[in-house]
Design a binder for these strands. Structure first.
Lengths: 186, 186
DNA sequence: CAGATTTTGGACAGTTCGGTATAGTTTGAA
DNA sequence: TTCAAACTATACCGAACTGTCCAAAATCTG
């Protein structure tokens, strides 16, 4: 299967460049050159740039949620700590050197029509993220895990945006402080 | 002064279209057609699209901070309530019908180089916003207004992003609930 | 090896982009 | 009313964009 490898190269490269520059700002020619793949390989396999974006976002969704969960849980001594170590995982993400904001927020910003498949892909990812937080809120023994998760989620998105905006390394820690207060308040 | 009027028309129209579609996504030709202004008027007055963006952001900064402060303070019976009525003002913003996210977050996303003048303009605006929140945190009698303001600010950005992403009318109210807990915790 | 499939490179189409050139018209102020 | 400044319309430029076509080369499979 030659096509598998080329397809993967293409999606990986596209994802990296989309994260860095945005979706509209990067042209298919640049992606193809960087991936070392011919133009027709793109259009034979995906049919359009939009389909490539969707494929890249799908991969990113799976990978990022898995990575975030692994990092969060590796840092927690007990399941009830996960709601807080989540912010340490976020800090690792922000400080990772190749952080240029959340690609799904980028996507929903660039394709702001609620019916756009790309916008829906972003929504779906954020649903997965909220689900993860809800799980941790439950494990933390919160009296109303859904409500707490919704509040923590706002902190997560706020921290993500502010980390990108200000390049301030202490952003995740500040969000964690706030999360502690929310957790203590029930 | 004919130029004042044309310049203002141009900046107002550009700002509206930038907020709706983003900065790179909208072309100067569309802006000019909508504003009813010739192309040379743009380039004689501003010299470049970038300069028009900066002018639009500057106007937006002043107007939006003033609007937010007025809405917040009009809703507060006492100065110490402002930290919470801020979220009611946000709700009014989100529900305003023409809400497509914060243009400064859009700008910092599209021009993510920290040295880019547009990114710096976004940073400056967010500094003004944080300053406003700090003022309200002080008025609320928080023991550490700077720290509380930083946490509330994360909620504000989170709510702004999530309101745009999900179109959920209850987002600001959820952020307000979280803010209450943070305020109570000191 | 043979044959089917994929990939390649490069030319090309059609559009849109930001920005310029120019020549003529409208406008505000003296 | 006169005159300079500002604005207009239009045509144009080079670059970049997504997507297509095609013949040749590389690759996998039987």
């Amino acid at each position: 299967m030659r096509s598998k490898k080329k397809k993967e190269q293409l999606v990986d490269t596209a994802l990296r460049l989309f994260c860095h520059h945005g979706f509209r700002a990067i042209g298919v020619d640049t992606i193809l050159a960087e991936a070392g793949v011919a133009k027709m390989t793109l259009y034979n396999n995906f049919g359009s740039k939009e389909a490539l974006i969707l494929a890249a976002l799908k991969k990113r969704d799976e990978e990022h949620i898995a990575w975030l969960a692994a990092e969060t849980e590796a840092r927690a001594a007990a399941p009830e700590d996960r709601l807080l170590t989540l912010f340490e995982a976020l800090d690792a993400w922000f400080a990772g050197g190749d952080f240029h904001g959340c690609p799904f927020l980028k996507a929903s910003d660039e394709f702001d029509n609620q019916d756009d498949p790309i916008h829906r892909a972003a929504l779906e990812h954020k649903g997965h993220l909220l689900g993860l937080i809800r799980e941790y809120a439950g494990a933390a023994g919160a009296p109303d895990p859904g409500r707490l998760a919704g509040e923590i989620y706002l902190l997560v998105e706020g921290a993500t945006v502010v980390a990108q905006l200000t390049d301030d390394r202490s952003t995740a820690a500040r969000a964690r402080q706030a999360a502690e207060a929310l957790l203590a308040a029930g």
